[in-house]
Protein backbone atom coordinates (compact mmCIF):
# COMPACT_ATOMS: atom_id res chain seq x y z
CA UNK A 1 0.00 0.00 0.00
CA UNK A 2 2.50 2.50 1.23
CA UNK A 3 4.82 1.47 -1.55
CA UNK A 4 2.16 1.98 -4.21
CA UNK A 5 1.39 5.42 -2.80
CA UNK A 6 5.05 6.27 -2.85
CA UNK A 7 5.48 5.19 -6.43
CA UNK A 8 2.42 7.21 -7.40
CA UNK A 9 3.89 10.21 -5.68
CA UNK A 10 7.13 9.65 -7.54
CA UNK A 11 5.34 9.44 -10.80
CA UNK A 12 3.50 12.62 -10.03
CA UNK A 13 6.74 14.49 -9.52
CA UNK A 14 8.13 13.04 -12.70
CA UNK A 15 4.91 14.00 -14.48
CA UNK A 16 5.40 17.45 -13.11
CA UNK A 17 8.86 17.53 -14.58
CA UNK A 18 7.98 16.25 -18.01
CA UNK A 19 7.26 18.63 -20.85
CA UNK A 20 5.83 15.81 -22.91
CA UNK A 21 4.55 12.61 -21.42
CA UNK A 22 3.31 9.73 -23.51
CA UNK A 23 1.47 6.78 -22.02
CA UNK A 24 0.06 3.72 -23.77
CA UNK A 25 0.11 5.35 -27.18
CA UNK A 26 -1.34 3.14 -29.88
CA UNK A 27 -1.81 4.10 -33.51
CA UNK A 28 -3.20 2.61 -36.71
CA UNK A 29 -2.82 3.29 -40.41
CA UNK A 30 -6.21 2.19 -41.63
CA UNK A 31 -6.45 -1.36 -40.37
CA UNK A 32 -2.79 -1.94 -39.68
CA UNK A 33 -1.82 -1.51 -36.07
CA UNK A 34 1.54 0.28 -35.92
CA UNK A 35 2.12 1.52 -32.38
CA UNK A 36 1.35 -0.91 -29.58
CA UNK A 37 1.59 1.13 -26.43
CA UNK A 38 4.45 3.61 -26.46
CA UNK A 39 5.49 5.16 -23.14
CA UNK A 40 8.13 7.81 -22.58
CA UNK A 41 8.58 11.33 -21.40
CA UNK A 42 10.73 14.31 -22.28
CA UNK A 43 11.91 16.91 -19.82
CA UNK A 44 12.09 20.58 -20.68
CA UNK A 45 15.29 21.59 -22.39
CA UNK A 46 16.66 18.16 -23.16
CA UNK A 47 17.54 16.49 -26.42
CA UNK A 48 15.90 13.10 -26.52
CA UNK A 49 16.76 10.62 -29.20
CA UNK A 50 14.53 7.86 -30.48
CA UNK A 51 16.51 5.01 -31.99
CA UNK A 52 15.31 1.89 -33.74
CA UNK A 53 15.50 -0.14 -36.87
CA UNK A 54 13.67 0.66 -40.09
CA UNK A 55 9.95 0.29 -39.61
CA UNK A 56 10.14 0.27 -35.81
CA UNK A 57 7.56 3.06 -35.58
CA UNK A 58 9.74 6.11 -34.90
CA UNK A 59 8.22 8.32 -37.57
CA UNK A 60 4.79 7.06 -36.62
CA UNK A 61 5.42 8.14 -33.04
CA UNK A 62 6.31 11.67 -34.14
CA UNK A 63 3.30 11.81 -36.41
CA UNK A 64 1.04 10.60 -33.62
CA UNK A 65 2.31 13.32 -31.33
CA UNK A 66 1.65 15.84 -34.06
CA UNK A 67 -1.83 14.44 -34.65
CA UNK A 68 -1.05 13.42 -38.21
CA UNK A 69 -2.25 9.86 -37.67
CA UNK A 70 -5.96 10.24 -37.10
CA UNK A 71 -6.56 6.90 -35.41
CA UNK A 72 -4.67 6.86 -32.13
CA UNK A 73 -5.40 6.10 -28.50
CA UNK A 74 -3.60 6.46 -25.18
CA UNK A 75 -2.36 9.66 -23.67
CA UNK A 76 -0.08 12.40 -24.94
CA UNK A 77 0.18 15.25 -22.51
CA UNK A 78 2.12 18.38 -23.25
CA UNK A 79 2.64 20.91 -20.46
CA UNK A 80 -0.13 19.08 -18.66
CA UNK A 81 -2.55 19.40 -21.57
CA UNK A 82 -3.99 16.27 -23.20
CA UNK A 83 -3.41 16.20 -26.96
CA UNK A 84 -4.70 12.80 -27.97
CA UNK A 85 -8.00 13.98 -29.38
CA UNK A 86 -6.81 17.26 -30.90
CA UNK A 87 -6.43 17.99 -34.61
CA UNK A 88 -2.89 18.71 -35.91
CA UNK A 89 -3.46 22.44 -36.20
CA UNK A 90 -4.57 22.61 -32.56
CA UNK A 91 -1.59 20.56 -31.44
CA UNK A 92 0.76 22.85 -33.33
CA UNK A 93 -0.75 25.82 -31.55
CA UNK A 94 0.19 24.33 -28.20
CA UNK A 95 3.81 24.92 -29.18
CA UNK A 96 4.98 21.78 -30.95
CA UNK A 97 6.58 21.75 -34.38
CA UNK A 98 7.50 18.92 -36.70
CA UNK A 99 10.22 18.63 -39.32
CA UNK A 100 9.55 15.58 -41.46
CA UNK A 101 12.10 13.18 -42.80
CA UNK A 102 11.37 14.16 -46.39
CA UNK A 103 11.74 17.86 -45.36
CA UNK A 104 8.50 18.90 -47.02
CA UNK A 105 9.79 21.95 -48.83
CA UNK A 106 7.04 23.33 -51.08
CA UNK A 107 7.81 23.53 -54.79
CA UNK A 108 5.18 26.15 -55.50
CA UNK A 109 6.57 28.49 -52.86
CA UNK A 110 9.68 30.63 -53.04
CA UNK A 111 12.40 30.08 -50.47
CA UNK A 112 11.24 33.13 -48.55
CA UNK A 113 7.64 31.95 -48.62
CA UNK A 114 8.72 28.53 -47.41
CA UNK A 115 10.65 30.14 -44.57
CA UNK A 116 7.82 32.40 -43.48
CA UNK A 117 4.99 29.96 -44.07
CA UNK A 118 4.41 28.60 -40.55
CA UNK A 119 2.56 31.22 -38.51
CA UNK A 120 3.70 32.12 -35.02
CA UNK A 121 2.03 29.96 -32.42
CA UNK A 122 3.63 31.44 -29.32
CA UNK A 123 5.83 34.39 -28.45
CA UNK A 124 9.57 33.89 -28.31
CA UNK A 125 10.30 32.51 -31.76
CA UNK A 126 13.61 33.35 -33.41
CA UNK A 127 13.85 36.48 -35.51
CA UNK A 128 14.95 36.18 -39.12
CA UNK A 129 18.38 37.63 -38.21
CA UNK A 130 18.91 34.96 -35.60
CA UNK A 131 17.91 32.32 -38.09
CA UNK A 132 20.41 33.61 -40.61
CA UNK A 133 23.07 33.53 -37.90
CA UNK A 134 22.34 29.83 -37.51
CA UNK A 135 22.02 29.17 -41.23
CA UNK A 136 24.12 31.68 -43.16
CA UNK A 137 23.58 29.75 -46.40
CA UNK A 138 19.89 30.36 -46.34
CA UNK A 139 20.27 34.10 -46.50
CA UNK A 140 22.06 33.83 -49.82
CA UNK A 141 19.39 31.62 -51.29
CA UNK A 142 16.47 33.65 -50.05
CA UNK A 143 15.66 35.10 -53.44
CA UNK A 144 15.61 31.68 -55.07
CA UNK A 145 12.32 31.12 -56.81
CA UNK A 146 11.45 27.59 -56.05
CA UNK A 147 12.00 26.02 -52.66
CA UNK A 148 12.77 22.63 -54.11
CA UNK A 149 15.61 23.98 -56.26
CA UNK A 150 17.79 24.10 -53.14
CA UNK A 151 20.34 21.41 -52.43
CA UNK A 152 19.46 18.61 -50.03
CA UNK A 153 21.42 20.21 -47.20
CA UNK A 154 19.90 23.61 -47.83
CA UNK A 155 16.44 22.10 -47.88
CA UNK A 156 17.13 20.47 -44.55
CA UNK A 157 18.23 23.80 -43.07
CA UNK A 158 15.18 25.51 -44.50
CA UNK A 159 12.92 22.83 -43.04
CA UNK A 160 14.32 23.40 -39.54
CA UNK A 161 14.66 27.13 -39.90
CA UNK A 162 11.02 27.66 -40.71
CA UNK A 163 9.82 26.00 -37.50
CA UNK A 164 12.17 28.03 -35.33
CA UNK A 165 10.32 31.23 -36.12
CA UNK A 166 7.04 30.02 -34.72
CA UNK A 167 7.76 30.08 -31.03
CA UNK A 168 7.22 26.35 -30.65
CA UNK A 169 9.06 24.97 -27.62
CA UNK A 170 9.18 21.31 -28.58
CA UNK A 171 10.74 20.35 -31.90
CA UNK A 172 10.13 16.93 -33.41
CA UNK A 173 12.94 16.28 -35.87
CA UNK A 174 12.86 13.20 -38.06
CA UNK A 175 16.14 11.79 -39.44
CA UNK A 176 17.98 15.06 -39.89
CA UNK A 177 21.24 13.47 -40.94
CA UNK A 178 19.77 11.29 -43.62
CA UNK A 179 21.40 11.66 -47.02
CA UNK A 180 23.73 14.47 -45.98
CA UNK A 181 27.49 14.78 -46.38
CA UNK A 182 29.60 14.37 -43.19
CA UNK A 183 30.46 18.08 -43.09
CA UNK A 184 26.82 19.02 -43.23
CA UNK A 185 26.01 16.47 -40.54
CA UNK A 186 28.56 18.11 -38.23
CA UNK A 187 26.96 21.43 -38.95
CA UNK A 188 23.57 19.94 -38.10
CA UNK A 189 24.90 18.70 -34.79
CA UNK A 190 26.19 22.19 -34.00
CA UNK A 191 22.81 23.63 -34.87
CA UNK A 192 21.01 21.23 -32.58
CA UNK A 193 23.36 21.99 -29.72
CA UNK A 194 22.87 25.68 -30.13
CA UNK A 195 19.10 25.22 -30.26
CA UNK A 196 19.34 23.35 -26.99
CA UNK A 197 21.28 26.26 -25.54
CA UNK A 198 18.50 28.56 -26.58
CA UNK A 199 16.10 26.46 -24.51
CA UNK A 200 14.39 24.36 -27.15
CA UNK A 201 13.35 20.85 -26.21
CA UNK A 202 14.09 18.41 -28.98
CA UNK A 203 12.83 14.96 -29.83
CA UNK A 204 15.17 13.55 -32.41
CA UNK A 205 14.57 10.46 -34.47
CA UNK A 206 17.84 9.06 -35.74
CA UNK A 207 19.26 6.08 -37.55
CA UNK A 208 22.70 7.59 -37.53
CA UNK A 209 23.81 6.68 -34.04
CA UNK A 210 27.12 8.48 -34.26
CA UNK A 211 25.36 11.71 -35.08
CA UNK A 212 22.85 11.18 -32.30
CA UNK A 213 25.55 10.55 -29.70
CA UNK A 214 27.02 13.99 -30.33
CA UNK A 215 23.84 15.77 -29.34
CA UNK A 216 21.58 13.56 -27.21
CA UNK A 217 20.96 13.72 -23.47
CA UNK A 218 18.90 10.56 -23.38
CA UNK A 219 17.97 7.68 -25.64
CA UNK A 220 14.97 5.47 -26.14
CA UNK A 221 15.02 2.43 -28.36
CA UNK A 222 11.92 1.35 -30.27
CA UNK A 223 11.02 -2.00 -31.72
CA UNK A 224 7.76 -3.21 -33.22
CA UNK A 225 5.86 -0.17 -32.09
CA UNK A 226 7.05 -0.21 -28.46
CA UNK A 227 9.79 1.39 -26.39
CA UNK A 228 12.03 -1.45 -25.33
CA UNK A 229 14.89 0.38 -23.68
CA UNK A 230 15.91 3.77 -22.36
CA UNK A 231 19.10 5.27 -20.89
CA UNK A 232 20.94 8.52 -20.36
CA UNK A 233 23.96 9.70 -22.35
CA UNK A 234 26.18 8.99 -19.34
CA UNK A 235 25.17 5.34 -19.51
CA UNK A 236 26.00 5.10 -23.19
CA UNK A 237 29.19 3.07 -22.80
CA UNK A 238 27.47 0.50 -20.63
CA UNK A 239 24.66 0.17 -23.15
CA UNK A 240 26.72 -0.17 -26.29
CA UNK A 241 26.45 -3.95 -26.40
CA UNK A 242 22.69 -3.90 -26.07
CA UNK A 243 22.40 -1.16 -28.63
CA UNK A 244 24.32 -3.12 -31.21
CA UNK A 245 22.00 -6.00 -30.63
CA UNK A 246 18.84 -3.86 -30.88
CA UNK A 247 19.87 -1.84 -33.83
CA UNK A 248 21.81 -4.52 -35.61
CA UNK A 249 24.67 -2.16 -36.35
Amino acid sequence: MAEAALSRALQATVAGDALLRIKGLQAWYGESHILHGVDFDIRPGEVMTLLGRNGAGKTSTLKSIMGLIPRRTGSISFQGRELISLAPERIARQGIAFCPEERGIFASLTVRENLTLPPAVAPGGLELDEIFELFPNLKERLSSNQGTKLSGGEQQMLAIARILRTGAKLLLLDEQAEGLAPVIIQQSARTIRSLKERGFTILLVEQNFRFASTVADRYYVMEHGRIIHGFANAELEANMGKLHEYLGV
Partner: peptide, 12 residues
Protein backbone atom coordinates in the same frame (compact mmCIF):
# COMPACT_ATOMS: atom_id res chain seq x y z
CA UNK B 1 -2.41 21.99 -52.27
CA UNK B 2 0.95 20.26 -52.17
CA UNK B 3 0.95 18.78 -48.70
CA UNK B 4 -2.11 19.49 -46.57
CA UNK B 5 -1.01 17.36 -43.62
CA UNK B 6 2.27 19.22 -43.20
CA UNK B 7 0.55 22.58 -43.45
CA UNK B 8 -1.84 21.51 -40.72
CA UNK B 9 1.13 20.56 -38.56
CA UNK B 10 2.20 24.21 -38.74
CA UNK B 11 -1.00 25.19 -36.98
CA UNK B 12 -2.96 26.22 -40.04
Amino acid sequence: TENPALVRSFGI
